[in-house]
Design a protein around this nucleic acid. Structure first.
Lengths: 242, 242
DNA sequence: GCAAAAGTGTTTATGCTACACCCATGA
DNA sequence: TCATGGGTGTAGCATAAACACTTTTGC
């Protein structure tokens, strides 16, 4: 493999992505376990080509990790502390490990570039978890969907980035109707409610919730869904396409 | 003057500031008229030192232009289009003018650096307009407070940056109680209302507005303000410090 | 029929809007 | 005493929360 092409990317500026999915009544985040170090976790991220827009870079990075295009993506904050990388212990581990990893590809100057100070643009993404086939990045041992309630400590300031992404998601879920990006094509009202409960980590009353969602006038009711359970079959809904 | 120290700054990353003030019942923005070109206007901006945080860079830039410290500042969006500078006519004007301006200070490599592709972090600031003494930047002929309703076309995508700053301000004014940063130490309820009317560009009913603001429980009522007008003297208020 | 969960209707509380009214001030 | 604008109270409306009830499904 040829040398890592630092000259193609904007230096000192990176993107980190908080990829939200929803499964088994839990809000989940796709995080990466590194090959380096012991039990080192991080948010998927990447760099911006000198010739591409920041938004396109985020889409590209998302596609590389999930295989999906046209993902719902939202830029939510810049993390620009001067010490967010510099004072972190993991920086030195990273330097050592990169050297051992592939000396051809990661020359001293590349390693210096990769471990220098970075300003990070935080994006969050909403995906239908069933459609995603996670793809390891170059430094990833594997990717894993983890409940937001069970996130291991992550490198640098990634814990803070996740926290603020969740805050931004909560603020936008209602207003921008983005929650439906987390659900499959058709879904029951109960599933929408369970999603909201997972995001906000609190219960909603069924009748009021249903009224609120239907009053948004963005769903169309389809046929009933017979599950074989001995109770009334719930209706399926679909997001209206105008 | 010595050479412009590009080596001290992060390349391809800049900050632009929308500085809001309030005067004569109008919401105003501090914008700069350039020495270069004809009638060229821009938002105040600057670069980020390699050793300083993004937030501190924004504070520094604000202090350079307004003389104020501890300004209310909010990062609201990143502008990362790959062509936001590149395809803009003004880029070529800028290159020419910088060369003529000071060939010692603006060497070809510095000019190349300054007119290359930039990703911009947008901040908005709220200031008490009476406390500000505008200071010209290096390229500014003068700075001017202009009503948001009377902004001349600005360079690059600065018009869009201003529009989105105003959107962000409107979203935050209520929730974060930031509006009081635009007012002097003490003020009447009528003045608060006029400020809100200027920001949202719509009228509010006096009694309901007063109730809403007082219910926030963040103001303390002081003595009356006698203006000599032949009507009931309004109370002065002050923002509570806890 | 019965348990389980879906779905709907009604009442209550809350907050916002609109209207009506009173009060202080200086000429 | 009057015009002017400040300040307060209350009724009406719309929205949201709480409570109660009916319906469907498979055993």
């Amino acid at each position: 493999m040829h040398k890592f092409g630092i000259e193609n990317y904007i230096a000192h500026l990176s993107i980190d992505c908080v990829i939200f999915g929803y499964q088994n009544n839990e809000l989940k985040v796709l995080i990466a376990k590194f090959k380096f170090g012991q039990n080192v976790w991080a948010l998927p991220g990447g760099h911006i080509l000198k010739t591409e827009s920041v938004d396109k870079a985020a889409s590209r990075i998302l596609k590389e990790r999930t295989g999906l295009e046209n993902i719902y993506l939202e830029q939510f904050r810049v993390f620009g502390d001067e010490n967010r990388i510099h004072t972190h212990n993991f920086k030195e581990v990273m330097k050592e490990e990169l050297k051992k990893f592939d000396a051809q590809r990661f020359t001293p100057s590349v390693i210096e570039w990769l471990t220098s100070r970075f300003v990070c643009i935080g994006y969050y993404a909403l995906v239908d978890i069933n459609k995603v086939s996670p793809q390891n990045g170059e430094f990833d041992e594997y990717l894993e969907w983890r409940s937001v309630k069970d996130i291991p400590p992550m490198t640098y300031d990634h814990d803070e980035i996740l926290t603020l992404a969740l805050t931004a998601l909560r603020q936008n879920l209602d207003e921008k109707l983005i929650g439906f990006n987390l659900l499959p094509e058709t879904f029951t009202m109960r599933e929408v409610q369970a999603l909201y409960e997972a995001v906000y980590d609190k219960p909603f009353a069924m009748n009021n919730f249903q009224k609120k969602i239907l009053d948004l006038n963005v769903l169309e009711r389809l046929e009933k869904k017979f599950t074989g359970a001995q109770n009334k079959a719930p209706y399926l809904y679909r997001f209206k396409r105008n």
